[in-house]
Design a protein around this nucleic acid. Structure first.
Lengths: 212, 212
DNA sequence: CGCGGCTATTGACAGACTGTCAATAAGTGC
DNA sequence: GCACTTATTGACAGTCTGTCAATAGCCGCG
C-alpha cells in the first residue's frame, strides 16, 4: 500500500545528466502549457526531483525557461545548418531547402513551436532576444545574398530588410496555423503544398537567382 | 512636509468612470511592460486606488488584462470599420484601405501593439482567442470575397485560407519591426512605402478584382 | 443645513508561489 | 568498511495574488 508510491530512494546523477533530463522534461512541459501556468512545484514533481535542485542548476524559473528555449533553438539551427550544407553541394535554391527543414521541425515539435511563438517571447527580454537571434540566423541562411549588405548594421536598403522580415512573418504565421491544424487532427495542407504556397510569396527583391 | 504627499482624501467615482480610468491606465502600463512585470500593487498605486478595488471591478489580474486588450481591440476595429464603410463608397480596393488604417493604428499605439504581439497572446487562452477573433474580423474586411466560402467553417479551399493567414502574418511581422524602429528613433520606411511593399506581397489567390 | 442610507473603497488577512541555504545522504576511492 | 566529496533536500523568508468584513464618500430627503 504505502510502498506503492514510496520515494524510490533518490538517485544521484552527474550534473550534466541531470540537467539534460530536466531540459528534456522542460521541452515537453512548455510544449503543453505556457510559462506561468506551470509552477516550479510541478516541474520538480514531474522531474522526480526537489524544487531546490531546479534552482540550484538554473538559478531561477526564468533561467530554466530560457535554457529550454535555447535547447529548442539549438536543435532547429542544427537541422537548418545541415540542410544548408547539403544545398551548397547540390546548388539548389536556399529558400526551398530552409523552408523544408523549418516545416519538418514544426511537424516534429508542434507543441513547443506553438508555445514559443505564442507567448514565450513575451515572458522576458532574454527569450525575446534569443528568438530574434535564431530568426536572424535563419534569415541569413534563407537569403545569403542580403547577408552582408542589408542585415548587418544599418544597411541602406530598408526595403529588402522589411521584405525579408515580412516573408518570415508569413512563414511563421502559416506554420503556427498549420501546427494547430495538425495537433487538432483537422484536415490541412500537405507540407509540400504549404511550402509551395509560401515560396510563391517570396518577394522578388530577396529571391535568390534561380539556377538550373 | 507630511502633507506634501497626503492621500488627498479619496474620491468616490461612478463604477463606469472608475473602470474607464483604470482601463486607460492599463493601456498605458501594458504598452510599456509585459504582463508579469507589472504587479497589481503597481497598477493600483499608479491608479491612485487600492488593490482591492482593482479586484472588485475586474475579478483578478487576468480579468483586468483581458479587459485592457479588449479595449485596444475595440478601438482598432472601430477605426477599421469606418475605413471599410468609406471604401464601399469610393469603391477602392479593401486591402489598401484596411492596411492603411492598420498601420496608422500601429503608429499611434506602438507600445501597446508591440506588447500585444509579443507576449500578450501567451498570457492566457482568453487573450489568445480575443486576438484571433480580432484578426479574423480584419481578415474578412481585407478579403471580403473569401469571407463566405473559405473562412466560415471548413471551406474547401485551404490554400486561400493559408494564403490569407500568411499575408496577415507578414503584415504583423513588418508592423512589429516598424513600430520598434519608430519607438527607438531609428531610420525606417515611410508608412506609404511599407504599405506598398506589403500590398505587393498579397497572394494573387486572395487579391480582390482591381477596379478603376 | 444636517442626517441616514447606499455603495464605492479600503486594509488586513489567507494562500500560493518563487527563491535561499544550511543540513543530509548517495556515491567513490582508499 | 570508512571517510570524503558534492548532488540533493526540506524548512524558511519574502512577495505576490485574491478575499472579505469594515469604512467612509456622496446623494437625497426632511
Amino acid at each position: 500500500m504505502v510502498s506503492a508510491l514510496a520515494p524510490a530512494t533518490r538517485r544521484r546523477l552527474s550534473p550534466e545528466e541531470r540537467q539534460r533530463r530536466l531540459l528534456e522534461l522542460g521541452l515537453e512541459l512548455f510544449g503543453e502549457a505556457a510559462y506561468d501556468q506551470i509552477s516550479t512545484d510541478e516541474i520538480a514533481e514531474r522531474g522526480g526531483v526537489s524544487r531546490g535542485l531546479l534552482f540550484h542548476y538554473f538559478g531561477n524559473k526564468r533561467g530554466f525557461y530560457v535554457a529550454v528555449i535555447r535547447e529548442a533553438a539549438d536543435r532547429l539551427l542544427e537541422r537548418s545548418k545541415a540542410a544548408g550544407q547539403a544545398d551548397v553541394g547540390t546548388a539548389e535554391d536556399p529558400e526551398r531547402a530552409q523552408l523544408d527543414v523549418f516545416l519538418r521541425f514544426v511537424e516534429d515539435n508542434a507543441g513547443l513551436f506553438t508555445v514559443l511563438m505564442q507567448g514565450g517571447v513575451g515572458v522576458d527580454a532574454e527569450v525575446k532576444s534569443l528568438v530574434d537571434q535564431t530568426r536572424q540566423v535563419l534569415a541569413r541562411r534563407v537569403a545569403p545574398r542580403l547577408d552582408a549588405e542589408s542585415l548587418t548594421g544599418s544597411g541602406p536598403d530598408l526595403g529588402e530588410r522589411f521584405a525579408l522580415t515580412a516573408w518570415i512573418g508569413a512563414v511563421e504565421a502559416a506554420a503556427v496555423e498549420w501546427a494547430d491544424h495538425r495537433r487538432r487532427g483537422l484536415p490541412t495542407l500537405e507540407r509540400r503544398e504549404l511550402a509551395g504556397l509560401l515560396l510563391g510569396m517570396v518577394p522578388t527583391s530577396i529571391r535568390s537567382p534561380t539556377k538550373v
